[in-house]
Design a binder for these strands. Structure first.
Lengths: 338, 338
DNA sequence: TTGAAAGCGCTACCAT
DNA sequence: ATGGTAGCGCTTTCAA
């Protein structure tokens, strides 16, 4: 069923059918009505592939995330998807499985598909996120993770701030030997580490290199990475009395290690993560965390993306920083003790 | 950058360029080499929209899930995405937000986009999942939830079996007053309910209507639905000593209600859910569950979908049933007591 | 082995 | 207000 068939049945030209669909005001009401009737009778839906080919716009937005299973990215995808859908866009989702190589291939593929814009939570660490000379002809937005020295559109939180308020929170509840389980070398990890150090300095607490451990994975298995990192910390001669974890999955692994070790949370070791996942409250010990407004990230990104598409010529990249916020729960609740 | 430009620079016709890309054996090796060189120099990637228009195949698979945030569907999406990507397909994902109306619109939209096949975890309850007379011209596969009386391709678990083995597990650990918090009127919910009853009958336990409560939501907020349903059960004169929950999110809510009520799990009330979510082990009480092999669902679906696309003429619909399996954890571990 | 050309379904321009 | 038609970038005959 195509526009030609409709035209034949309605005894008008295909141009008129097209206008009835896309610019009804340019068709005589009576004609439009007749065409519309046929359209409905035959349950016609335009072939969006053909439309895309001629207009040069697919109404497709490409999204690349490290993992769909990680709630944080799932939440972003969900809200992004909702807002875009309401404006007639569809989401072409690719998971990079935390692999830079897959991410690059996926980006190339999405570009080849003609997406109107790209949204990327990158796992790459270099500025050249696109394969050499694959200059994206479309606007793109980085979410959650930014890239040092790359002036790109960005939506996320200020990670140094995340690290700072999380650490300061632990200090405020009375902890003094605060460790950090960090992530790999990406912006979010280094930002949070900086914030952590910054908070310690401000409160005149020493920065002990032994108290900083890097978890070697941050995807679904961040859990076990957090577990081993925490064990390492607990094995120190003077173990920490608090741990700020890179994110909630890491914190969940750390929680397991601490409890297995016969220690109590928060009495012996207080714990805070980041991301504010849905299930945080249902955990062994309800987990304190830093809320990163994942929904808002999705919404803001959707709106930014649509703005970018509408723009004629690329403007100055926009950075949208959302405010992180500490959500205190049992895992850091030492108020009774201090 | 298009095929025409390549042809000009390589001093061949566009047909030859096309053949070099799609059927190299039909081009003289020397010519092919020359063309390929230009292709690489200019970093050419074919316009897949144009290709789709002429071939009639987009290499796009549409996926509609009730929610991306629900880990179970996220896991399916992830594995589906991986397998399809490896075969050159992309996933066009739409979340229906548990709303049948949005689901129908999304389906129409995806069809309009020309997806080669559809994968649907439907929230609809009638056989007519497609809007009236929008006859899908493409194969589709239902996952997780089937539809009574609709002979469609299906991949999922045998839900009656899920209910049966979950309930029997509770019986085996010594529970006798076993309640069920069920889901809304979809196949998975009614299947599990049947299995629950079946197990009770087999073991000569009474089926008490008061012990069957229906949670009115099953998405992210299934948590709170489970909470209220459990409170209702705990308020009975003789409260149950075990609850089989429709799924893990519901069980998590029930867990909260039980603990808040000052009762112990599993000593006072044993608990089992379904879905085997990643975080089950990290919960307040590690949750017993029924594993539904979400990864395998994704993989099987991907393979089935590709088979269906390759088929010339639609064959008999295929039903792929995976074996559910009880995963016993603390929440039902009453072995010491019995 | 290669090239010319039709045509996928649609939009957009120009003409009427 | 409507129709004719070029052409988006590609694949696929058919001819040479």
């Amino acid at each position: 069923m195509n526009i030609k068939e409709i035209a034949k049945r309605a005894r008008v030209s295909i141009a008129t059918v097209s206008r009835t669909i896309n610019a009804p005001h340019r068709v005589r009401p009576e004609t439009a009505r007749r065409v519309r009737k046929i359209l409905e009778e035959l349950d016609y839906y335009p072939n969006l592939t053909a439309r895309a080919l001629v207009t040069g716009r697919t109404n497709l937005i490409g999204l690349v995330v490290p993992s769909l299973v990680h709630s944080f990215f799932a939440e972003i995808s969900q809200s992004l998807s909702r807002v875009l859908r309401e404006s007639g866009y569809s989401l072409l989702i690719g998971s990079s499985d935390e692999d830079p190589e897959i991410e690059r291939k996926t980006l190339t593929h999405l570009l080849s598909r003609g997406v109107d814009a790209l949204v990327i939570a990158t796992v790459q660490q270099t500025k050249e996120i696109f394969p050499k000379s694959v200059k994206p002809r479309v606007p793109y937005v980085l979410v959650d993770r930014s890239l040092n020295g790359l002036a790109a559109n960005f939506v996320g939180v200020d990670d140094e701030n995340v690290g700072f308020i999380a650490t300061e929170h632990l200090i405020e509840v009375g902890c003094t030997r605060i460790a950090h389980i960090g992530g790999l070398q990406i912006s979010t990890a280094s930002g949070r580490l900086e914030g952590y150090k910054h908070a310690l300095k401000k409160h005149h607490l020493p920065i002990d290199p032994d108290h900083i451990v890097i978890a070697n994975r941050m995807d679904e298995s961040a859990d076990s990475a957090g577990y081993y990192a925490a064990r390492q910390l607990l094995g120190l001669k003077i173990p920490p009395d608090a741990i700020f974890c890179y994110n909630d999955p890491v914190a969940i692994g750390a929680m397991r290690a601490i409890l297995e070790n016969g220690m109590r949370i928060p009495e012996d070791v207080a714990l805070i993560g980041s991301g504010n996942l849905h299930l945080d409250t249902a955990l062994r010990v309800p987990l304190s965390t830093v809320d990163q407004q994942s929904d808002r990230i999705g919404e803001c990104t959707a709106n930014l993306v649509m703005d970018l598409i509408r723009e004629e010529r690329p403007k100055q990249p926009k950075k949208i920083l959302l405010m992180p916020r500490v959500v205190g729960r049992d895992s850091s609740n030492r108020s009774q003790k201090n």
